[in-house]
């Protein structure tokens, strides 16, 4: 999943979508995921990194992760031409 390139993410987790003028806030984990996605990391890789770094098992994280990606999609923050 690719985040639209012009989406701005601040260090504090503030997201501004210049296409629509909407803004969002993220908690720390969400901000970290978004930065990883922006830098082109694969989804499976992100899951591995998180399970290692945080006190969470892979299954739980995977579930939360895809729920979060669903929200990004809902808010139209991802590229549509995804295969």
């Amino acid at each position: 999943m690719k985040i639209k390139s012009n989406i701005a993410v601040s260090d504090n987790g503030f997201v501004f979508d210049p296409n629509t003028g909407d803004s969002y806030n993220l908690n720390n984990t969400a901000a970290e995921i978004l930065q990883m996605l922006k830098s082109g990391k694969e989804e499976t890789e992100i899951i591995k990194v998180f399970a290692k770094k945080y006190d969470v098992d892979e299954t739980t994280f995977e579930q939360n992760f895809y729920d979060f990606l669903g929200m990004l999609n809902h808010y139209n923050l991802v590229e549509e031409n995804r295969g």
Binding site: Y24, N25, L26, T29, Y54, N64, F65, F68
Partner: peptide, 18 residues
């Protein structure tokens, strides 16, 4: 390991207290 918190995104709405 760091304390985990599930990722969350909230839309900031004008006119709605946040």
């Amino acid at each position: 390991k760091l304390r985990y918190e599930r990722p969350v995104i909230n839309k900031i709405k004008a006119g709605v207290p946040d």
